[in-house]
């Protein structure tokens, strides 16, 4: 059974900005093929996972306030099933790296990531988490969390608007839908 193109309710497929990237992922995953029963189970699991992404309450600076605003009444990410923010990394599904990561914080963040249970996803929120942002020249700021963690979705902005955060979360949902739980590799590892 083939993995289909990831869609999100209410938004036309063409309006997403990164379709070719995901289509490439779909093509790679479909190369090996899966049998129908297992494929159905995969679909069910991916549906569950993508609709129940519980974020870790983690924020270091300005973006954290926007993260709270997304949870609050006007934007309300509970609509997507994200509202159960867990304070314990063991119970969270994704970590939103909202804010600057400094050299002192980097090992702590890595440790938090290691403490999370699989499957786990990382969203880099804001310029600081993506590349250091306005603090690129600082002696104590990590130049992007992708140096220490595998990042799934980048949400640019300083800080990103709540709408951008929601868009990023939906992109993560689309990406989660392209996974194989039974058999098959999800990602081709680069030879090192």
């Amino acid at each position: 059974m083939e993995i289909k193109k990831p869609t999100i309710k209410g938004i036309p497929y063409e309006e997403w900005k990164n379709n070719d990237y995901l289509e490439d992922m779909v093509r790679q995953l479909n190369e090996n093929g899966t049998n129908v029963v297992v494929g159905c189970l995969d679909d069910l699991i991916n549906w569950g996972r993508s609709n129940s992404l519980w974020p870790l309450t983690f924020a270091t600076s300005c973006c954290g306030i926007e993260f709270m605003a997304v949870g609050a009444a006007r934007y309300d990410f509970a609509r997507f099933g994200f509202e159960v923010t867990r304070a314990s990394p063991r119970q969270a599904d994704m970590i939103m790296v909202a804010g600057t990561i400094t050299h002192k914080m980097a090992p702590v963040l890595k440790r938090l990531y290691d403490q999370m249970a699989d499957p786990k996803y990382v969203v880099a929120v804001g310029g600081c988490a993506i590349c250091g942002g306005p603090f690129k020249k600082s002696y104590h700021v990590l130049q992007g969390v992708d140096k220490i963690l595998p990042v799934d979705v980048y949400i640019p902005g300083c800080p990103p608007r709540p709408e951008a955060l929601l868009y990023g979360m939906m992109q993560l949902q689309r990406k989660v839908k392209l996974e194989k739980f039974f058999g098959g590799v999800n990602r081709k590892q680069d030879k090192e």
């Binding site: 400094t102 002192k104 020249k137 104590h140």
Partner: peptide
Amino acid sequence: CGYIHRGIEKMCES
């Protein structure tokens, strides 16, 4: 302290 020490004052010098 210092988990979000971004060195703003030092950066300002340049």
